[in-house]
Design a protein around this nucleic acid. Structure first.
Length: 289
DNA sequence: CATCAACCCTGAGAGC
DNA sequence: TGCTCTCAGGGTTGAT
């Protein structure tokens, strides 16, 4: 399931033409010849027929990412793509036969290259709009936003009397974390998924912010995680600490990893490293800068 | 404000 | 072998 690192990896490959940097398959500068929607519900906005018409003639500009959304700028509109569970984008020459069972949207460029949106479970969505804020407006800060320092993060997290796991999954709190990186970050920060956010002290929330950034950085460095049907060369799955490692040894202490359901999501954690009870010896390193 | 469940989907894996 | 059942998961929606 694509989260921030996977979406970032895809954005980079659309810009540079593949993870390896093949310029012949990058999309900026290409002009749309035609578009076809193969599964109507993939298009959230506008109507599929208008989507197809409006894209024709527009040229790709900047390709970026906001949270888990891909932002593909065109002359007049921005194409927003959310991959949800199983979405994937391919850039390939028209000659390659469309033998893919689950292609949902095709965008053909004038120079014989096309962009294909493939999505097994049909949860992915696209918006073609000149008002991207209407779609992205509720997103929280980017985890790497430079204005998000330890103080700001602690202030934010103190406002919520929710459990950490659902809070971190809430895209209006922080944009980009999904189930994998949330579990990984909580383990790295040695925090139990059910801890109430507002009860974190400064040292704990700082640790959490740092852990979030570290696991996301690791994910990006490894081109994301490749699991389920979506394989795109990522390798982060090889270094999962807790995610989908139920019953296996915690890399830190060797205890068996537990699994429970939190907010309808499978949640993996080490019962020893991430104890709900704060260790009695926990120091109060309160006097921060 | 927070929690919970249903919904959208498919295919993998279990059980029979 | 092949059928049926359960489950996973991001985000939205509506109820409590």
């Amino acid at each position: 399931m694509p989260e921030l690192p996977e979406v970032e990896t895809i954005a980079r490959s659309l810009r540079s033409g593949g993870v390896g940097g093949r310029n012949d398959l990058s999309i900026p500068g290409r002009r749309v010849k035609s578009a076809s929607v193969l599964w109507d519900r993939t298009i959230a906005q506008p109507q599929p027929v208008e989507f197809e018409k409006r894209l024709v003639g527009q040229t790709v500009g900047e390709v970026g990412r906001r949270g888990k959304f891909l932002t593909i700028h065109f002359d007049r509109d921005i194409l927003l793509v959310h991959l949800r569970m199983s979405g994937d984008l391919r850039v390939e020459p028209d000659e390659i036969q469309l033998n893919q069972t689950h292609d949902r949207v095709l965008v053909s460029f004038e120079d014989g290259i096309r962009l294909a949106f493939n999505d097994t479970r049909k949860f992915g969505r696209m918006w073609l709009t000149d008002q991207p804020e209407k779609v992205l407006g509720n997103l929280g800060l980017e985890p790497f936003d430079p204005t998000l320092d330890a103080e700001a993060f602690h202030q934010q997290i103190s406002r919520h009397r929710r459990q950490l796991k659902p809070l971190l999954l809430d895209q209006s709190f922080l944009a980009g974390l999904g189930n994998i990186y949330t579990d990984e970050a909580l383990h790295l920060a040695r925090l139990h998924p059910l801890v109430i956010a507002s009860r974190l002290n400064f040292e704990q929330s700082s640790r959490l912010l740092q852990a979030i950034r570290q696991v996301l950085s690791e994910g990006i460095q490894r081109n994301g995680a490749s699991i389920d049907w979506v394989y795109r060369g990522g390798e982060f799955q090889n270094v999962f600490r807790v995610y989908q490692r139920t019953g296996q040894a915690c890399p830190v202490c060797g205890t068996f990893i537990n699994r429970m359901v939190v907010g309808q999501r499978g949640t993996h954690y080490c019962p020893v490293c991430q104890s709900l009870e704060q260790p009695a010896a926990q120091r109060q390193e309160g006097a921060h800068g």
